[in-house]
Design a protein around this nucleic acid. Structure first.
Lengths: 337, 337
DNA sequence: CGTTAGCACTCTAAGGGTTAGAGTGCTAAT
DNA sequence: ATTAGCACTCTAACCCTTAGAGTGCTAACG
């Protein structure tokens, strides 16, 4: 598709632009590698420009990569970019320092990721394909209020306050809870609602609530993600305009973030990169998102990724996302094993 | 301190500046109320300027309120500013629509508040002065891992995964949990650790974990707050500089937000306003924060507030914060009743 | 004495004009 | 195919000018 020399020139332009943020002149390219003159480089650049890989902000300026150029660069990168052994160790070490709680892991992953790539990180909590009940408990709060506590298969807690018609003692509640736990344990929402044993009014009420909670659990595609490192991302010069920032904030706070690209993450394999206009949200047409799944395929999974300006250090961000996804998969697999 | 006329002129300047965002000229002031000429207004303005209430950006510009001017304006405001009946109803209505869960309330309060005042809202979850155990449960996850679930007095759940020395059946775990619940229910961390009954190794392990969790619960001054509506705040013209935004984001993401003013909220009564330099964080010297407590004094409480540019609609923000604090107090009081 | 009309003064923001320099595309030579 | 050389273009940074807004002061007024 691209001659080796053009490929090389393109990659130099992208690298240079990413690190400096300024249009890249033929001279800068000529100084790096290939023993050719600036004139030759200029000729090749014209070809790349016709191909839509690069463009000039104005006539007398150097070249700037276009989305197609970034795409090409990233394709090359995907092959070899890996984290150094030292970085991997450093990251693993940090995970050993925190508690064995999924929320903590996700938070830490977001913190590490955003810190390393100087951009915002997103991490969703892992979600099981099918929620299964592990244990349930009824705790009398006061008068007619009862707290229903569900423990789902992967140590996930859900709670709901139920209002009863008549007061019931804690002893009776505990008995019912024990009873229901033993009949429902290990079952999914559909299996629970399928069971049509004879139930007391209380048990019926509780069962309905359980099914409701577990179904809503399965419905949502993903949990709301942890977002960390906005402070880093906003320091990038491309976010000088506060209008852009506000628009982005809108997307983030309205939670439309997930809907916009998670479907594509689920379907795809490996680390995926969405550059500029490839993002569905208008506010993100100046951003790139690097995401991947983590977890155990077909059982439990979440998403982890980075958001930043198009001019991002892909050579760092891609392997970092990849590695953190690996670590999270191991941890989650361990917990759910 | 201030003659009635100066007081009036000052308040006009502040109001006008808040609504328009432009320096206020003597003519604008003269056109509103008081039957005096621009020259007289100018004379009075000079007095106000000497007093440090207002200032000119440059020689030939109108006046802009200084922090002292805002302070004076707010002091006047505090007396009478109330929400309309319609707004109050509208807000109450929204709270009736959501589930009886503290987290939901806090989230909703933040959403309503930020939407109404077009700025960022902060709401912490209510925190009890002393954590009391309501119920505990032990659920076997697999092999040596056991999930400890605590239900605290105010329907608050806490969890921790314990690693045991040897496998224990779910039946035994449940028995222990029931046993411990009955002995510990209604007690505080210190009371639990004071009890020195004979304990099995398992019970000892669990007790230690309980005390640990409950103590950490009491230690933290406040929970991490929900922040909502940054998208609104960032649209304000004073946040045109992205440098400011990034600095603010730093404060928010690093959680230093709470430490910076919550001590003062706890000690103070009623709605409090921190204007510009009165905020401890450097990044917030261009911001105002309006906060108050909610909850039941001496028992349980949280904080709710607004953050925005100094040029904020105090006449709207102050009563809104006040009213939402009232609603949250009622709800929380109801739940903990 | 407080108030006001009148006026000179100051400062900003916007527009226009100039210029140095960067980087190009083209041409002609190698 | 490559390259040196050069004319050309466009930007960004200046400076200069000017209209207009709003002031502070002075002197007159009730």
């Amino acid at each position: 598709m691209l001659t080796p020399r053009r490929d090389k020139i393109l990659n130099i332009i992208v690298e240079e632009y990413i690190s400096k943020g300024l249009p890249v002149s033929s001279e800068i390219v000529a100084r790096r590698g290939l023993g050719v003159s600036t004139a030759t480089v200029r000729n090749e650049m014209m070809g790349l420009e016709e191909g839509g890989y690069i463009a000039q902000p104005h006539t007398s300026a150097g070249r700037v990569p276009m989305e197609k150029g970034y795409r090409h660069y990233i394709e090359t990168l995907m092959g070899y970019a890996r984290l150094t052994q030292a970085d991997q160790l450093m990251i693993r070490h940090q995970f050993h320092q925190v508690e064995r709680v999924v929320e903590e892991w996700a938070r830490l992953a977001a913190a590490i990721l955003s810190g390393m790539v100087h951009n915002a990180a997103l991490v969703t909590l892992p979600k099981t394909v099918e929620a299964r009940l592990k244990h349930l408990e009824l705790v009398s709060l006061h008068e007619l209020f009862v707290l229903l506590v569900l423990v789902l298969k992967e140590a996930k807690l859900r709670q709901q306050v139920l209002t009863l018609e008549e007061g019931i003692s804690q002893e009776e509640l505990s008995a019912s809870a024990r009873q229901l736990t033993s009949t429902y344990t290990g079952l999914s929402a559909s299996q629970i609602s399928a069971k049509n044993k004879k139930l007391t009014p209380l048990e019926e009420r509780v069962t309905k609530a359980i099914v409701e909670i577990m179904e809503s659990e399965e419905q949502e595609e993903y949990e709301e993600p942890y977002v960390d490192g906005l402070r880093h991302m906003l320091r990038q010069p491309e976010f000088a305009s506060s209008e852009k920032i506000a628009a982005l904030m809108e997307v983030i706070e309205q939670k439309s973030l997930l809907k916009s690209f998670l479907p594509r993450v689920i379907s795809g394999e490996g680390v995926q990169v969405f550059i500029g206009r490839e993002n569905k949200e208008k506010a993100m047409r100046d951003c790139s998102v690097i995401v991947t799944r983590y977890g155990i395929p077909g059982e439990v999974g979440g998403a982890i990724g980075v958001m930043g300006p198009i001019r991002m250090e892909y050579d760092l961000a891609i392997p970092t996302v990849r590695f953190l996804s690996k670590v999270m998969s191991e941890l989650v697999g361990d917990l759910y094993g």
